[in-house]
């Protein structure tokens, strides 16, 4: 890895996780306040994360295995917030109907 590629790759990795986190945060806050705008902004973050993952795959000298892992985790990022949210809702609903 060349010195320049090193910093570029690491920054892309950081931005990737950051965008994933932005998606999770905005999505959840959007659901909480029922603000579709925020949910969409969250979606945009996920798209950004995915684009960054693609950029990593195309531009950086990482080994193929790592690139696939990053692309796969971009897909996993997509489902974590909604699935977690729905699960928490189910738990709470059930709790309330029990009471």
């Amino acid at each position: 890895m060349t010195p320049a590629a090193l910093l570029e790759t690491a920054s892309l990795m950081g931005l990737f996780a950051l965008a994933g986190g932005g998606y999770g945060g905005l999505y959840s806050i959007g659901r909480l306040w029922t603000r579709p705008g925020l949910i969409q902004a969250g979606g945009a973050c996920w798209i950004a994360a995915f684009v960054i993952a693609l950029t990593i795959a195309v531009r950086t000298p990482l080994d193929v295995g790592w690139k696939l892992l990053i692309l796969a985790s971009a897909l996993v990022y997509a489902v974590i917030p909604p699935v977690t949210w729905r699960y928490l809702e189910r738990l709470h609903d059930q709790q309330e109907s029990n009471q």
């Binding site: 996780a17 994933g20 986190g21 999770g24 945060g25 999505y27 959840s28 806050i29 659901r31 909480l32 306040w33 790592w66 892992l69 990053i70 985790s73 996993v76 990022y77 974590i80 917030p81 977690t84 949210w85 928490l88 709470h92």
Partner: peptide, 20 residues
């Protein structure tokens, strides 16, 4: 590389709890 995933779940959870 998998380690951030559960941490993301915790962020969602914290926001949910705040709101619920």
């Amino acid at each position: 590389a998998l380690e951030p995933l559960p941490l993301l779940g915790m962020v969602v959870h914290a926001i949910y709890d705040a709101g619920s």
